[in-house]
Every structure is written in C-alpha cells, then in structure tokens.
Nucleic acid binder design. Structure first.
Lengths: 132, 132, 132, 132
DNA sequence: GTGGTCTAGACCACG
DNA sequence: GTGGTCTAGACCACA
C-alpha cells in the first residue's frame, strides 16, 4: 500500500511535528491499523526526502508515548490501545481548525471561497475511499 | 472592541506563524476590514504575552506580502488588496494547485473531502466581499 | 577565495539593506554563481563584525525573494532564478517604470544621463549570462 | 522653478538621509546655486508628503554643517563657501556606486542590462539640460 | 507614542 | 555545525 504522509519543508512547522501529526492522524482514522507496520525509518526518510534522524526521532517519540512499538530487527508497529476512533466532537473541531487555516491561506492568495469549493467538489469523482 | 488573536506557546508551530495566520484569517473573514488599524506592535505583544520583536516580524512579513501597510510613526493598517488581473487560465491553475495541496494535507490528517467541503460551505454566510 | 562584502556601519543605510544589496550585486555580477554556497550566517557575521541575527534576516529576506535557497542544517545557496515567462508588454512596462525611478534618483543626485549610461555600458564586459 | 527632490518612503534609507543627500547633490551640481533659497520647510514637507519636522531637522543639520543658512522670518539659503564644483574623481566614484546599486536592483528584478540601457538611451531625446 | 534596527545570548530543528 | 525562533533591552526615525 502506498500510504502517503504529506510533508512540506517550506512550512514553518517543524518537520518532526508535521510527521508526528500525520502518523497520529493516520492511526486515529484507521488508515494505519492496529499491529500494522510503519515504513522503516530509512524508507520513510527516502519517501519524504528528509533525514533519517528526523524520522527516527519521531518514531522514538511515538514509542515513548505508547503509540507505536519498535521490535528490534523487525520494524515499528502500531500499538493496540490507541485504536479508539476519534471522538466525533474532537474530529469536528480539528476539521474546523483546518478549514480556518485553509481559508486564511486562500484569502491571502486571492482565491474566492467559491473557486476553492468548486475545485474541491470536482475531485469527488476521482475519490476512491472515504478518506481522501 | 476586543479583537482577540489566539496564540498557543506550547504548539510546535512558531509563534510568528500562528500570529500571521490569525491575522490573515481575521482579514479574510472580515473581522479586520480594509484600512483598519492593527493593534500596535507593543500592544499586541502585551496582549499575547510575547516579545514585541516577534510581533514586528509578523507585521513586516505581512507588509512584504502586501497584506498590511505600515506608516512610520503612525501604525499598521490593513491594505486594500489589489489583485492584479491574473490571466484566467493562470488563476485556475493556481487554484487547482492549491486545492491539490489542501487535499493532500487533509488526507494526511484523515479528514474526508466531504467534511472539509461542509466546513468551508458553512463559512459562506459570514462572507462580506467577493474575495474570501 | 576571499569574497568580501563591504559594510559601512556609519552609513545611515541600515546594515541589513547594505548587505542585501551587496549580495544581490555579487550574484548579478557573477561573483556568486548559481548553486554556490554563501558564507554561513555566523561566518558572515564574524567577517562583517555584525550580529548574526542581522545576517540571518538578510538571508531570510533573500530567500523570500527567491534569490537564495536555504537548506535547514546545511547552508544557504544561490538559487537558479526562474524568470516566469512575463508577458512582453508587461516586462517592458516594468523596465520603463524602473528606468523612470533610476532617472529620478540620478537626477536628484546630480548625475547626467550620459554619465550613468557610460558606467552601465562599461559593465557589459563582465557580464556572464543573459540576465544582468 | 520646480526643483524636485526624489524621496522614496519605501526605501530603507531614512527619509532624513535621503533628503539630506538630495539637497547636497543639488548644491554640489549647481542645481541649487549660491544664495538661492530653498523651499520653505512646510512647502518641502507638502511636496514630498513627509512630516515638516523631518524637513526641519534636515535643514538644521545642513545649517550646522555650514551648507545652508537660515534667516529667521525669511527663509533658508545656500551658503557661499560650498560652491566648489565636485572633484571629477569624486564624481566618478559616486556615479560608479550608483551604477552598482542600479545594477543590483535590476538583476534582482530580472532585467537585462541591455533592456535597461535601451530604456535609458531612449530618454536622451527628451532631455532638457545637462543634468537629467 | 509609533514602527524599525541592532545586539547579545539562549534554545531548538536538522544533517 | 547549519539555519531558525525567541527574548530582553538599547537606541533611532518619524508624527
């Protein structure tokens, strides 16, 4: 499967924070399931074109938080206990925050809200699963 | 009026990036109108409990982006945005690129396309001018 | 090689503006080539006997202008300039506006048009690429 | 006579420095002759759209330097002793510095040296006096 | 009192 | 070791 984690080096958000967030959301939303293996540190580094140390640091942090588990010589896997689906309310808040951000950026670039919504709606056809 | 910009020092997103986004959002949504004065650098710093230099950096960046105008010795004001008459085709391409990016980010965060569109559509009510 | 950038602290022109201009000039005249690394922030600060933050500000500004590229943890490098294919008419207008400004400044400083053209023409010899 | 002093508020060079330089050059190059009256502080402020205090400060500084003389209730006049024509060598250096600056700016804006020279040469026809 | 420049120095993210 | 962020605080330019 080609799970993609979206990373933007030009974003002022630190790479490690972007990646951490992306992995947590993937788990929370079921894109990464319990027991499933994460890409190896090196593979992830290659995929995202970032330094392996940065990936390793993220994995270590997630392990400290009990979200993933590293089995030496084998790989890194999603832990059991964190597979509670996100609270609906919490999810809504996150979507709202995200929409705020998108709106601010679009406004700064001179796009109308309608332009953007039109574009997004035109993607519905190509969609494959529930999650984009 | 107590316009408030919220900042979270614990967030890994740099303070200046958080504030930049907050101001852009306020402008985009009409909370800050064209020609209106922003809080002074020092006042904003006091309100947000951050250093005045950090605020000054944000204002300077917004000015370079043509979003605000600063009059030396007077203050900082929201600019009338002058959207250069962009070629229609070019504009479409930019919107499409932006939508791609938004989609990728939303996907990485586990939001469905519908969630996002719903959120964005709910903003239409508050809209004031043609540009978001 | 001992590329030197000259800065005059007694000049009322801000240090960061002097350095920005000096770097742009070095790039424009080919003293700094595409892809070449600039001195590190700290090294430049030591060389010029100014604060590292001042240098960092200059580098950040040049990056926003697309003139240099900084790779986190690596260094700062001269960008390949990508001149967007500007409409010919638009380009002409911009050159004309720029020439107007130059003329006005030259006039205010008491230079004759011939003096200026002579000086500029004498630069042709050192030119390396199509763009100045 | 409509002597114009060119001031650019967006330039990082302080207004007072820009104006001081412009007046000195006007005197040095004979645009302002010995004994000639400068515009009143208020007139100059209106013409340049800057604050009268800034103009007053410049005049005071020039007077301290013995370059102009203020007769109370009358006006401000160019002093006698500074009417030495600029040394040729000095003039050349200044032109060269100016050309450097123009070149750096043009390069940053993506203009070719030829574009600029062409534009400038096309102005020769409209020229009125020796000084632009 | 407004924004702008500069410094010194701490700490972080990344390679 | 590289650049980036933030702070505290001094001093300047402008209204």
């Amino acid at each position: 499967m080609s799970l993609m984690f979206y990373i933007n080096p030009a974003d002022p958000i630190p790479l490690y924070a972007q990646l951490t967030r992306a992995i947590q959301f993937a788990i929370t939303t079921g894109q990464l399931r319990i027991g499933e293996q994460l890409p190896t540190v090196r593979q992830m580094a290659v995929d995202l074109k970032i330094n392996a140390n940065t990936v390793a640091k993220v994995y270590a942090e997630l392990e400290r938080a009990g979200i993933v588990e590293t089995r030496r010589g084998v790989g890194t896997f999603v832990c059991a206990r964190h597979f509670e689906p996100m609270q609906k309310r919490q999810h809504e808040n996150k979507v709202r925050d995200f929409a705020d951000r998108v709106l601010a950026e679009a406004g700064a670039m001179g796009f109308s809200l309608d332009d953007l919504i039109d574009q997004l709606q035109s993607r519905r056809k190509k969609e494959l699963g529930k999650y984009v």
